[in-house]
């Protein structure tokens, strides 16, 4: 009973924290574009506020630069359970064009924090980002919430 209630509540209010761990910014502005009236993210109950302490979903973009190696883990632990990590764009999955000899990136993100879903594209289209969050977040959050008990 309580679980079912929690599932409903979690489904309809997803708080998102966007973490740019060293990319070109392209993925981040596509997330900003999602806020625009055309896509209207908030009608799905998703709220982007960049505050890790209140986040249900952490969207990671970028290829993990030197400075982020430790901080990424720290931000991850700050977010309350249950949480879902979505890797957005080619950068956190493979390092994209930056992952070559001589660079200072340490992709993939999954070396540092557990990743629940990956979405490729450089950058992915806003509609794809929206679809990804909606496809993975409510179910995964509910399942993780039960697991913990």
């Amino acid at each position: 009973m309580l679980d079912a209630l929690k599932d409903i509540v979690r489904k309809s209010s997803i708080h998102v924290c966007l973490v740019n761990s060293g990319g070109c910014n392209g993925c981040d502005i596509e997330v900003v574009a999602l806020l625009s009236p055309r896509y209207d993210l908030e009608q799905y109950g998703i709220y982007v506020h960049n505050n890790p302490r209140e986040a249900d979903v952490i969207l990671v973009t970028g290829a993990v630069t030197e400075q982020w190696k430790e901080n990424l883990r720290r931000i991850y632990t700050k977010a309350p359970e249950p949480k879902v990590v979505v890797a957005l764009g080619n950068c956190p999955i493979s390092g994209d064009v930056f992952n070559q000899e001589g660079s200072s990136v340490n992709a993939p993100v999954s070396d540092f924090i557990p990743v629940d879903a990956e979405l490729s594209g450089c950058p992915p289209r806003p509609s794809e980002i929206l679809e990804a969050i909606l496809a993975v977040a409510p179910g995964a959050i509910a399942a993780k919430g039960r697991q913990k008990k």
């Binding site: 740019n20 993925c27 630069t65």
Partner: peptide, 28 residues
Amino acid sequence: GYVHRGIERIMEGKTWQKAIYLAERVCG
């Protein structure tokens, strides 16, 4: 220092066909 990727360093020793993609990703 949070988004330093070392783009100039990666470009060295590449042909322009490869480097132009890196130039594009200096800023989105």
